[in-house]
Design a protein around this nucleic acid. Structure first.
Lengths: 133, 133, 133, 133
DNA sequence: GTGGTCTAGACCACG
DNA sequence: GTGGTCTAGACCACA
């Protein structure tokens, strides 16, 4: 697992780290029992505050994605490899939609706004899962 | 123009106001030269502090969406009514994609993560507009 | 006397009007006793609030540049045509300096900042006139 | 970086702060990556409200001069040290012109008006940079 | 510790 | 009546 961050993206660093772990888990790149790099190592590589990595790992632990074992490290807990094909399919759908939207000449910000507003609609209609299922 | 806010959404109020103005402009509901409700009126209607509205209007001014005229009011500057049909088409595309994704049983958060990661890819490949065109 | 204004320059409209009258007086285009266009006429031509013109004329009256005569109009009071050649010389000096600065590739904002900071220095050293002399 | 303000200059405090940061950047006194004093420290030193400093910093962020990093501070973004000698030359030109003008017996206000009108001419003729280059 | 958001309300400047 | 600036101070989020 190698992390990449964007210091000036507006997105909190710990969120960026969390997303990457989740993404890797969803794709099956990280599986149950796999060990994540140590907090110290991640912080050194990215030249960020160790507390930031601690926070990312803590939040992931709360979400049940990984488990922090004192003195031995952080390990993936979720048995989620089976979702990989489903995620792949979803990616294809999203990719196709974005391609069509980009062809319309929309900017990224507009696209994001439309996405969020349509999503809000679906949410309001209760047609969306809230927990994994 | 009537504003609606959600005090407990985690999203800053001034951002919510900004989004609504932008959205209205994109849809053509607000056109160049249209006057927005005064800062005080908005603040009173929503029962929020006028400074919060000031901030939303000022940021929109920075983005070139509106112009604040001292002593006379806030006016839309962007000539963007013609984008309405384009936006409508984009909404249809997004809606359809979200429907298919929701049917797969994905959660909102997963969907958002996939959307952002595919978007990042398109951005990296330079296939996306940065400014309105 | 024909006025021109820039609604979105950030500079108050009444200041813009004042500047134009003063400039015309300095150049000798307006002389003692000359009548200025009526407030109503100016307001109609520029499509601005008559109060704005009133304010410009009032401030100029305070500065002794013109005199408002009830029922008959606004008239230049200042006997300042003799400064015309001096102003012309000053314009030449400024023009030459600006040309050299523009050639250096400086932006307008940078130039203005440098101008103000050097001016502040001269002012601090007391080498500048405060009243006309 | 040490700030100085003039409470009774008519110029908004946040503008005064902005100018000083820009000036320091142009002169090379502040370089890319340099950290500015914290909002609270500036507010305490000048005995002004922290929000006023926030506004100055935020506007500078809009202009791309600095970057506010949540939780860690404000940092200069602009790579502009090489302009220092150019600015020094410009200052000399301006200083010389102002000296000659002051010798003519012009007041500060007249000088400023002439400066602005000649500048407007150069601008209209397109002989001036708009962006840094 | 940092910056980010928001409130409550004063006083000024512009049209 | 408009927007513009500033204060005093609370509470939250991030590193």
């Amino acid at each position: 697992m190698i992390f990449r961050i964007n210091q000036s993206a507006g997105v909190p660093l710990y969120i960026q780290l969390m997303e990457q772990v989740k993404h890797a888990v969803e794709l099956g790149a990280l599986r149950e029992g796999d060990q994540l790099p140590t907090i110290r190592k991640v912080a050194e590589e990215l030249v960020i505050n160790p507390n930031t990595v601690v926070r990312a790992y803590r939040e992931l632990e709360h979400e049940g994605v990984l488990e922090l074992k004192h003195g031995s490290g952080a390990f993936i807990t979720e048995p989620s490899g089976k979702r990989a094909p489903l995620i792949a399919k979803a990616q294809a759908i999203v990719q196709s939609a974005i391609d069509r939207l980009a062809a319309l000449g929309l900017t990224e910000e507009e696209l994001r706004r439309i996405f969020e507003s349509q999503l809000a609609q679906v949410r309001a209609e209760g047609r969306m899962e809230k927990q994994k299922g």
